[in-house]
Design a protein around this nucleic acid. Structure first.
Length: 452
RNA sequence: GGCGCGUUGGCAGAGUGGUUAUGCAGCGGAUUGCAAAUCCGUGGACAUCGGUUCGAUUCCGGUACGCGCCUCCA
């Protein structure tokens, strides 16, 4: 049985064969830390976290590297707006990102190289590119990558250079040889944050950091390079050009891209302003529900976000948590085998989740343990059965105007009415509670309740 | 204009050349004072037009609609 991965560059599923038998080097483009993460960021984090977890379950020793872009115009602009130093802003956002990630049940990457700590390495790479004729310094002092020096330019996105220039919306700098050339080193203007270099004070262009840091961490050629859907072009195309032009070697062997999160048929994005931050969502829904919602779609498909979709996911996930075993025993080897078959086909998490439901309806102790075992590989059920429901109830209680004590008092009143066979009053109390999101359950041992 | 993706039942979302996806919701039943929860059962789909085929939702081609990238964005 072999693992198939859809490779963006090949535009088809390919059998996965790592460079070294048991080891995988994987680099994923991370966040530019100038603002809080939104659901689109969350999707990339969760998708690659599930992939890494599965690869590890599959026996691979994965070295998962995800960068932090902490040099960028948007960062400087936001810091200036807030009147703080840019490093203060990035420290705050990095911290927030780590919290969001943790709540989503993601394991930390093995390394998180930061652009500001790797400028030396980028300058070395730029130097190499210049010496090979693949880069040049313009009159403005900016250093550009010479796209014409890399004949494979456009291979990731299946584009021809001529077509790109023809429809160019690229800002044309006067000192560029070609509009498609992109900046490697940006010379500093008066008052801008800058780092010293042989090209004069300035800061790195966006793409060069990923080439430098990924190759530093994983070597000139490594196994998997991933990222969000909007990085395919130009970011990843440019990474390939820079890296391969510098080393003469193949850069990443498999390219993986997550699909977009959509809102009303449109991509969730900063520029459209239609994004929801994870932070906001966590106030409405348990983080595990968000993760489950994300995993319910295949990592490459577009996923439609709506409040209703999350409510559906919440109901579905709750059923699975309910089916979790009270005492863990050995999972069914058949179930585990099936899970592996499904995931081996380009990480089919929606199908794996369907398997979870099939196991839930079996209802045996073994199937319950299988749910737990499989869920663990997907990074689900991390809170455990009781804690999950407790946390979820606490979340809902916070939004509710009705205190636990008030609910208990109403239930006591209803109990009395029921004893008096005054079902009209009893039902009225119950209906009022339902209207306020409180559901009663009359059991043998009395009435229990939960918030919905 | 270039490159690419999608269109599956009320909604979400997999997959397959001929056989049940799965979930949420709905409906019927068991249960309940009535409910809730649970359990059992159940209806409902493959945008459109052609082609290939014994047979296509699944392969090929056209059409329509939607979406993404081509500028910062995960």
């Amino acid at each position: 049985m072999s693992l198939q991965i859809f490779d963006t560059l090949a535009r088809e599923k390919r059998e996965f064969q790592p460079i070294a038998a048991e080891k995988i080097g994987m680099y994923v483009c991370g966040m530019t830390v100038y603002d809080r993460c939104h659901l689109g960021h969350g999707r990339v984090m969760v998708a690659f976290d599930a992939i890494v977890r599965y690869l590890r379950f599959r026996g691979f020793d994965v070295n998962y590297v995800r960068n932090i872009t902490d040099v960028d115009d948007k960062i400087f602009a936001r810091a200036a707006e807030r009147g703080i130093d840019f490093s203060e802003l990035t420290a705050e956002m990095i911290d927030a990102m780590h919290q969001d990630e943790k709540r989503l049940g993601c394991q930390s990457p093995n390394a998180e190289p930061r652009a500001t700590s790797n400028i030396e390495s980028m300058l070395k790479l730029i130097e190499t590119l210049i010496s090979k004729g693949a880069a040049y310094q313009g009159a403005s002092g900016d250093v550009y990558f010479r796209v014409s020096a890399f004949s494979d330019y456009g291979k990731l996105n299946n584009r021809k250079l001529d077509d790109m220039i023809a429809g160019a919306r690229v800002a044309v700098a006067d000192d560029k040889e070609s509009p498609a050339d992109f900046v490697l080193w940006k010379s500093a203007k008066e008052g801008e944050e800058s780092w010293p270099s042989q090209f004069g004070p300035g800061r790195p262009g966006w793409h060069i950091e990923c080439s430098a840091m990924s190759m530093d961490a994983l070597g000139e050629t490594f196994d998997i390079h991933g990222g969000g859907p909007d990085l395919k072009f130009p970011h990843h195309e440019n990474e390939i050009a820079q890296s391969e032009a510098a080393t003469g070697c193949k850069f990443a062997r498999y390219w993986m891209h997550a699909g977009a999160v959509r809102v009303n048929e449109e991509k969730m994005s900063k520029s459209l302003g239609n994004f929801v931050t994870l932070d906001t969502l966590f106030k409405e829904f348990h983080p595990e529900v968000i993760r489950f919602f994300l995993l319910q779609s295949h990592y490459r498909s577009a996923i439609s976000f709506s409040d209703d979709a999350l409510v559906q996911a919440e109901a579905a996930y709750g059923r699975l948590v309910q089916a979790l075993p009270n005492e863990l025993s050995a999972p069914s080897s058949d179930a585990i085998f099936e899970f592996q078959t499904l995931m081996d086909d380009d990480f089919n998490t929606p199908r794996a989740i369907a398997l979870l439901f099939e196991l839930a309806s079996e209802g045996s102790a073994e199937s319950a343990s299988s749910i737990m075992a499989i869920g663990k590989v997907l990074g689900l059920f991390t809170s455990g059965k009781e804690a999950f429901f407790e946390q979820q109830q606490a979340l809902k209680a916070e939004k509710s105007g009705l205190s636990d004590a008030a609910i208990d008092a109403l239930i006591t009143a209803r109990e009395q009415a029921r004893k008096d066979r005054d079902f009209g009053t009893a039902d009225k109390i119950r209906d009022d509670l339902v209207a306020q999101g409180v559901v009663l359950e009359d059991g043998a041992g009395g009435t229990s309740w939960h918030r919905k």
